[in-house]
Every structure is written in C-alpha cells, then in structure tokens.
Simulated scan of single mutants.
Amino acid sequence: MAKKTLGGIEDNNKNLGGVSALFNSPSKETPATKGEKQAPSPEDETVTYPLRLKKSALKALKILGAQQGITVKDLILKVVEKEYDL
C-alpha cells in the first residue's frame, strides 16, 4: 500500500488536531541525537505509593490546598517532611 502524506490537514481546522500523528511514522531520532537525559541520582528517584484517605480528609485537604494554592500531594509531602525531618 502506498504511503500517503496528509500535508497540512490540521491547519485551520481545530477538530483535526493530532490526526497527522496517527498516520505519519514517528521520527527515528535516537536519545543520543535528542540530547541524552541524565539518569536521576538514587536520592532524587521517586516512586509512587498509594495512599488511602477517608473521603472527608481528602475533601478537607483539597479545600486547604485550594486556599493555599498548592496540590494535595504537596501538602502531604510537606507534612511528612516536617514530621520526620527529611
């Protein structure tokens, strides 16, 4: 099957955003050509950890976070760091 190029199908049409990404092959750049990202040091490495909260506590944290302009995650991390002197 012949490879077709769609040209500028996305130009001047907001409803077709991302269409060319579906049909065009991804660029074959290697990480070396993009500029290698440095691996984070083991101290800076992050891991995810599920945290279970009561709905009322989560709601209160969301309200508090909105008042202070920070996320719930940042609120929790700040408290943990302060409590355990990390």
Rank of each mutant, 00 (worst) to 15 (best):
L22M: 11
A60V: 02
K14Y: 01
E10Q: 08
N15L: 09
K34L: 14
D74N: 10
L53Q: 08
D44Q: 15
K73Y: 00
E29K: 14
S41V: 13
Q38E: 09
K62G: 05
K59P: 00
G69P: 03
E29F: 12
P42D: 09
L64Q: 13
E36V: 13
E36W: 06
L86H: 10
L75V: 06
N13R: 11
L86K: 11
P50D: 05
A2Q: 14
G17I: 09
Y84A: 08
N13D: 13
D11E: 09
K62F: 01
S27C: 06
S27M: 05
N13K: 08
E83W: 01
A39Y: 10
S20R: 07
F23M: 07
Y84F: 15
V19K: 03
D11A: 13
K14D: 05
G18N: 10
G65P: 00
L16T: 14
A39W: 08
E45I: 09
D44G: 07
R52E: 03
E81H: 14
E81C: 11
S27I: 04
L75T: 05
L61V: 06
K62M: 10
Y49P: 00
L86T: 13
V80W: 02
L75M: 12
K82D: 12
A39I: 12
D74M: 14
E83I: 05
L16K: 10
S25C: 07
